[in-house]
Design a protein around this nucleic acid. Structure first.
Lengths: 148, 148
DNA sequence: GAGGTGTGGTTGCATCTTGCAACCGAATTG
DNA sequence: CAATTCGGTTGCAAGATGCAACCACACCTC
């Protein structure tokens, strides 16, 4: 049977998953952030089958995450992150942070390029900068917020 | 063929995807944050096939995202988020934020429970609280940071 | 205690998706 | 011209997914 469709779902989480809801897509975006742009680069870096890679790249292009641009060398093209694709940075880093917290320690640290210092862990903050956990927040209809 | 294994990968992103690298798992966690705990609740909320749900719930339990606890009523049990599972909040909200930014507007807003005010969008901050974009940061080996 | 009913699954089967390997066409290189 | 690289396409075998039917257990009702 066909994979269920989630795009119709109103929830933006489900809509996001429509675009990057499979492992290869996420890893491709990860590599794109790491500077990879060519078909072959993704293939070697990920060890993914060519046909799968073809389909995934096309899907990411279709969803506006990647963009095909003509390559300087010859008739081929490269895949680069669009502005929208670059918006996935937080998702990727949230995944990274979670995978790091639970499980083996990672030998890498995310640092500020300006001063080489580690950046603060990702977290939500209230308008007065208090740090907020899952239980300190709730999703409410936009209309409700305006009233308060 | 067997789905490729990513767990051996050193990258914590890949390790995370091993646990929550499929759409149903993410949506189940989303519903868990929304307060769902029973098999039937997940089934109805997501419209997922029972067999798939069974497998996904077991996987999430195996990865320590959910925990089976005996239910108050009768011999059944409930699935609740573990501390580790609750750590996925940022991932979920990052996905939500992205899905909201690109695509139709969402009718919901994440607010602080204390004062009902919208929370600040998720973002990285340097140690001096400057907001950082993807290009302002880089991943460096942990050893390098100590040297600086 | 016979017969529903709700919950939480399991099983079978048809269909998709994935992974691998082989092949291929165009351009570049030797 | 032959060989190689790049970026795919194609065919196939095996896994994953979706649906529906079935099932065991506890509970409720009569």
């Amino acid at each position: 049977m066909k994979r269920k469709c989630f795009g119709e779902d109103l929830c933006p989480v489900a809509r996001s998953l429509e675009a990057v809801g499979d492992v290869w897509s996420v890893l491709i975006v990860r590599e794109a952030f790491a500077g990879k742009r060519r078909f072959g680069e993704f293939e070697r870096a990920l060890g993914v089958a060519k046909n799968i890679l073809t389909v995934r790249l096309r899907k990411l292009v279709a969803f506006g995450v990647l963009e095909q641009v003509p390559a300087a060398d010859g008739p081929r093209h490269e895949y680069v992150l669009t502005e929208r694709g670059r918006g996935l940075y937080l998702v990727l880093m949230a995944l990274r942070q979670w995978g790091e917290d639970c499980g083996g320690e990672s030998p890498y640290v995310l640092v500020d390029r300006r001063d080489g210092q580690p950046v603060k862990p990702l977290a939500f903050h209230a308008h007065d900068d208090r740090e907020l956990g899952p239980d300190d927040m709730e999703l409410v209809p936009a209309a409700e917020v305006k009233r308060r």
